[in-house]
Write a protein that binds this DNA or RNA. Structure first.
Lengths: 228, 228
DNA sequence: AATTGGTAAAATTTCAAAAAAATCGAAATA
DNA sequence: TATTTCGATTTTTTTGAAATTTTACCAATT
């Protein structure tokens, strides 16, 4: 039988995904001490696979490990958010220019497909907010990655992914969803895609930068309010 | 007693450093399958701390982990080298501009100090090549980081560090040492530092880019020869 | 000769408990 | 009252071995 590469995944590997998700979604809030016994029960897994998972996440910044003192969810701060968005803007603009330069018909098609998927979810009337949100988040992620996918740089994609998830965590921590304060995110995405498809790199980068800056401002002001 | 932060380190933590070093230095060549029992004897440690260490390294690219099939040292390729150097150039130039813009007297002093340390090692007559080389490598690393240290971006520094180590591995894999083919690396470094201290960001970035490109060309031609 | 199937060996992954270290609280000291 | 010291408890880390999965090998079949 054609097995493909669908081998059974490792416990540690699944745990890494689960914990990362729970951190990004805010189920495990910033600063939480990660008690190993408690967590391993929570996730119905052994302590050693759990340690492996946490070790992996500590290499990319979601978790802070301190020798002999275990693990904790990394703290959030205005400073880190600003740094994240600044570097993210730089990297995504570089990748976007490369992607527009290299992108072929297949890239264009995939981009349009990703945009369509995201749009359909946006248009769905808000029934079950939570589960809908999960779908929109993945659609949103996939759209942004599709935009850059022709850049042909493994490193850029790796770093950008890390920053994307970091950024998502901040947005979720501040309980911001797609449409906040009369902002028309759908149109922003549409314009961004059109600029990319027209191979207008300068315009696309400007739109992307503005897109990030708007989000950052919203999150920053939410953080200010929350602190009061 | 003033303890500082000199707590006892964890076995897994030390292992991660050792293995990373051995990968960068070529003691563990690209593609090596990492047999856990053998390795744990080699490093005189248990398998679980070892797995933790390898898991951490797999998040930054030195090690490739495949579920149920263990770990192996990541392969090297022309493609990855080119990508590494391209992204590294972009990131270091961004960081360098920020560093020059922000850098205060303390930054200047640290930079000069780091350069002096590296120079002194370079001037030492080649007696024990291997141990000397280790010193020069750390001096070289510290110099480049000192150059960027005022950029005030944790993310940039993290990514740049990863790329620096990746790049070092390629240079070492090709058995290239500091001075190859009549290249005057000392002068390159000196000029780079002077441009930075003069706050001439454009010139400094140009020198840095040239510095990287020269190295890349050398490594690439070595890889061609090795393949024959 | 090449491919399939099945078994033995080897390696990876996971578990459970021991060992080491940090934390907490109360008693003792200044 | 504030600080230190000591012991008990919790938590992290490591160990050694069981369970699971992959790999290697060899015979049988096409």
């Amino acid at each position: 039988m054609l097995e493909g590469q669908s081998q059974k995944r490792t416990m540690a590997s699944q745990l890494a995904d689960s914990v990362r998700n729970d951190i990004v979604n805010g189920t495990l809030p910033p600063g939480t001490r990660l008690n190993l016994n408690a967590l391993s029960k929570q996730y119905a897994a052994g302590v050693n696979p759990l340690r492996e998972a946490l070790s992996r996440l500590s290499a990319t910044g979601f978790i802070t490990a301190e020798d002999q003192r275990g693990f904790k969810v990394s703290e959030i701060s205005r400073k880190e958010l600003i740094d994240t968005q600044r570097v993210r803007t730089e990297l995504e603009c570089i990748a976007l220019r490369l992607s527009i330069a290299n992108g072929d018909i297949n890239w264009e098609s995939e981009l349009i497909a990703a945009h369509h998927r995201m749009s359909r979810i946006q248009r769905t009337p808000m029934g079950e907010r939570l589960s809908l949100d999960v779908n929109w988040e993945t659609g949103h992620h996939d759209f942004h990655m599709a935009l850059l996918s022709a850049c042909e740089s493994e490193w850029l994609m790796l770093f950008i992914n890390t920053l994307f998830e970091c950024s998502t965590r901040y947005r979720k921590a501040m309980l911001l969803f797609k449409n906040t304060l009369g902002r028309d995110v759908e149109t922003e995405h549409k314009n961004l895609m059109d600029a990319a498809l027209n191979k207008d790199a300068d315009h696309a980068c400007a739109l992307l930068t503005a897109h990030f800056n708007e989000t950052t401002e919203l999150i920053l002001s939410s953080m200010d309010k929350a602190k009061k």
